[in-house]
Simulated scan of single mutants.
Amino acid sequence: MRVSGLLRLLALIFALAAMLIFIRSNVSSTMKTVRLPRWLSWTPTETRVPATKCGLSEPCPENFFAFKIYSGAANVVGPSMCFENHTIMSSVKNNVGRGLNLAVVNGSTGKVVKQNSFDMYSGDPKNLINFLLEIPLGTLVLVASYDDPGTKMNNEIRELFSKLGSSYAQQLGFRDSWVFLGAKGLKNKSPFEQYSKNIPDKNKYDGWPELLELEGCVPRKVF
């Protein structure tokens, strides 16, 4: 091998070795600046969001109950009800059904008295009537629709819901969406209610209006 060729080979080997040393040095230095435990444990205090009952956007004042109600989404996702951070009814708990889902809560203690679902498409409306008639004075009533709440709705049921403070029970029809919180013995209309009419060319879902969400703070003894 000529001397010039040997020198070029040595120069190439030297260059490669220098590059390798440079890369290893920089990668090692970079890796040392990343301390995994520090990243895992670091939480910026300015982004922490205080926990609220039922995940409300704001905490409730003292002597108020926190609640959140979701209607069902079409005939696919069932409704849910949360009261004072306790999930009363939901698909996960497997205690919701097609039609109207109701929970009765003591207006002073916040304790759940009873809950049930009523099939308003093919069920017997007398079951719902009896349930509403048996609601004790001084209790709160949470209502969430699912799939179809209106086919078996009659004037007696509409009147009973109206007496609980509903403004929309008289309009409730086939596949409408409805969420409501009222009380037995309430003298005025409840401020806690949302309603969405089933309008085929305006529905969010194919055959059903949008899911409704209702949240708020209800004072003790609203009756």
Rank of each mutant, 00 (worst) to 15 (best):
P149L: 04
I157E: 04
G185E: 02
Q170F: 14
D201G: 00
A51S: 13
V141Y: 08
P79F: 01
G150K: 02
R38M: 12
V76F: 14
K114N: 11
A17H: 09
S25I: 02
K68L: 02
S80F: 09
S108F: 11
N188V: 10
V27Q: 06
L132M: 11
S4D: 11
S4W: 04
G5K: 09
P37T: 00
G97W: 03
Y121H: 14
V49R: 11
L12R: 12
L16D: 01
G99H: 08
G182V: 02
L6Q: 13
W178L: 06
P61W: 00
N94P: 02
S28D: 13
K32W: 07
D147Y: 12
G5T: 15
K184G: 03
N203T: 08
L40G: 05
A17Y: 10
N188H: 11
E58T: 14
S196C: 09
V76A: 14
N94M: 11
K221F: 12
G72Y: 06
N198L: 00
F192C: 03
N198R: 01
K187F: 03
K114S: 15
V141S: 09
D201H: 11
G173S: 14
F131E: 09
L137P: 00
G165D: 03
F65G: 08
L211A: 08
S57C: 00
D206I: 04
D124W: 02
Q171H: 14
T52R: 09
P79M: 00
V113I: 15
G107K: 03
N63L: 01
C54F: 04
Q194L: 07
P61R: 07
L164W: 08
V143H: 04
L214V: 04
T109I: 13
I135V: 15
S145R: 10
M89L: 07
L133N: 15
G185D: 01
L172C: 06
A15T: 13
Y168A: 05
K152I: 01
K93L: 15
L142M: 15
L137R: 02
F161Q: 01
G99K: 01
G5C: 03
L40N: 07
A74H: 08
F223T: 08
M1W: 09
G5V: 13
G216F: 05
S80R: 10
R175D: 09
F161N: 08
L164E: 06
H86A: 05
P200F: 05
R35M: 01
D147N: 12
L10Y: 12
R8M: 08
I69C: 06
E62V: 12
K126P: 03
I135A: 04
Y121F: 13
P61M: 00
M120S: 08
I21G: 07
F83T: 09
N85S: 14
L137A: 10
M1N: 11
I23H: 05
S90Q: 06
G72H: 03
A169H: 05
L137C: 00
F83A: 03
F223M: 00
W178P: 10
R24E: 13
L137F: 15
N63V: 09
S28Q: 10
G216M: 02
V143N: 07
T139N: 15
E134M: 06
L214G: 10
G5F: 00
